[in-house]
């Protein structure tokens, strides 16, 4: 019953028709459209690697919800990226069990090897390095998640070979 009027930013962003359809499909899973907002952000991210600013009003309009609500969600969750990321996002677990199994050495090795700091993307656009909460693989710490692949335990020595697999 509630209708919303969203103003659409003039950003050059255009929602891909397939994504739009996927968002509407997602919307059907829930009693209220707001519930699909996180799914919608993920759909956009799937295509672009991140969620461009212009996508926010586009999603709001597609779902018929407030723009600030979408932005509020898009800035809250850590797996929604608001800046371009590399082809492969490396999420390194920095929680206690990994910390106790030498996370810091692994992190330093990654930083050395990639030549970037946490939160940065390599110049060739290949990797982005980010911290993540406990990956639920504490028996294999230290762990990291590259794309959808979980690795652990990862030793600094094994890193170069491991990363080779990600072009």
């Amino acid at each position: 019953m509630t209708q919303h009027t969203a103003t659409i930013a003039s950003d050059a962003f255009a929602l891909d028709p397939a994504d739009r359809a996927a968002i509407l499909e997602e919307r059907a899973h829930y009693p209220y459209p707001q519930a699909a907002s996180i799914g919608a952000l993920k759909i956009v991210q799937q295509r672009h690697g991140y969620v461009p600013d212009g996508a926010i009003p586009a999603i709001a309009e597609t779902l018929g919800i407030g723009v600030a609500d979408v932005e509020g969600v898009a800035t809250f969750y850590s797996l929604i990226f608001r800046q371009p990321v590399g082809r492969h996002v490396i999420l390194i677990c920095d929680s206690s069990s990994c910390f106790l199994t030498d996370y810091e050495q692994l992190r330093d090795a990654l930083i050395d090897h990639l030549g970037i700091q946490m939160g940065q993307t390599t110049a060739d656009g290949r990797f982005t390095l980010l911290p993540v909460c406990c990956l639920g693989a504490c028996d294999r710490g230290p762990t990291l998640l590259i794309g959808e692949d979980l690795h652990g335990p990862v030793t600094p020595e094994a890193l170069p070979a491991l990363l080779e697999a990600y072009a």
Partner: peptide, 9 residues
């Protein structure tokens, strides 16, 4: 996501 917890997975 509780640090140290890997059972539900």
């Amino acid at each position: 996501m509780e640090p140290g917890t890997f059972k539900d997975r």
